[in-house]
């Protein structure tokens, strides 16, 4: 590491020490943001609907009606039925449980690993960074289908594997992004200042560096969630993931895409649900970023 002397110590900006009020202020700012509020509300509605909807519906997600077959939306089936005559609404909500759970949980895993890994590599640099980043290169290069099949052979069909498989690929780019940011921020004046004040490394990383790169982290997280949800459909193809007759958004969209001309509702509703969720997530993410940005409030 090179030691660049702090150029202008006077430039240390506003509160280095965010107190509890930061989170409180952030929450207040978030609530004022209409789009973010919309995102939060609509996400909650979707989550509650997925949790409770299937219980309230008079149809089971696996319940077929072969004589009915694929039918357009009607009073009996609000969103229509699929080719086996199953109610699309209840399948969409039941599948949402899987997709939301996988999307959020796997993303959380990827986020945690990626941020910590990237921050450590970027902050300490040197040999440690080299080893850590070459390991990331190696992970990137592994043949994913082979990796997944092997996982299943070794550990059987465990739903936890789904998270391992997804986590194994999704944290890599996050780690590289965070590392790049940390390497840039750690050379900034206020960090040098904090260092010269004798603050501990962990404190510097998590208190001073991380808050300054929340933007890219939040954005990349909102990018990861849809990726994870669609990846789940591919893993189902390999035999990992949901087994029929249960479904997930990714699988429903994939099936719907193949029938879009004959039975457009099979694509439109799952697609809409998926988009709505992602829009909400992005609104919430953008709002969160703005709310946590200590400087932007002045604009």
């Amino acid at each position: 590491m090179t030691s660049a002397p702090p150029t202008s110590p006077a430039a240390v900006p506003e509160p280095i020490e965010p107190g509890n009020s930061l989170w409180h202020d952030a929450w207040l700012r978030l609530r004022k943001n209409k789009l973010a509020t919309f995102g939060l509300v609509s996400l909650s509605v979707i989550a509650v609907a997925c949790l409770l909807g299937p219980l309230l519906s008079s149809y089971g997600y696996e319940e077929q009606n072969l004589d009915l077959g694929a039918s357009a939306p009607s009073a009996a089936h609000w969103l229509g039925t699929d080719t086996l005559g199953r109610d699309l609404l209840v399948r969409l909500l039941a599948g949402g449980r899987i997709s939301l759970a996988v999307g959020l949980a796997a993303t959380f895993v990827a986020l945690t690993i990626g941020v910590v890994y990237g921050a450590v590599a970027g902050f300490f640099g040197g040999k440690l960074d080299a080893v850590m980043m070459r390991s990331v290169d190696i992970m990137y290069s592994m043949p994913f289908p082979i990796f997944v099949i092997l996982l299943m052979v070794l550990f059987g069909r465990n739903i936890l594997l789904l998270f391992v498989a997804i986590g194994a690929v999704e944290w890599l780019t996050m780690a590289r992004i965070v590392r790049g940011q940390v390497m840039s921020i750690k050379k900034m004046e206020f960090i040098e200042a904090a260092r010269s004040l004798g603050l501990g490394r962990r404190r510097i990383i998590f208190r001073h560096i991380l808050p300054n790169m929340l933007g890219p982290i939040i954005v990349y997280t909102t990018l990861t969630i849809p990726g994870v949800m669609l990846l789940e459909a591919f893993l189902s193809f390999l035999g990992l993931g949901v087994q029929p007759p249960m479904s997930s958004w990714g699988v429903l969209i994939k099936d719907g895409a193949e029938k879009m001309e004959e039975f457009p509702w099979l694509l439109i509703f799952p697609g809409t649900m998926f988009s709505l969720t992602l829009f909400s997530l992005n609104f919430l993410g953008d709002g969160l970023r703005d709310a946590l940005d200590v400087r932007s409030s002045k604009d």
Partner: peptide, 17 residues
């Protein structure tokens, strides 16, 4: 037309529809 009927439903449905 079926797709268009649902246009007004939600914003995100727009592109798909």
């Amino acid at each position: 037309t079926f797709a268009l009927r649902f246009l007004s439903l939600t914003g995100p449905a727009l592109p798909l529809a």
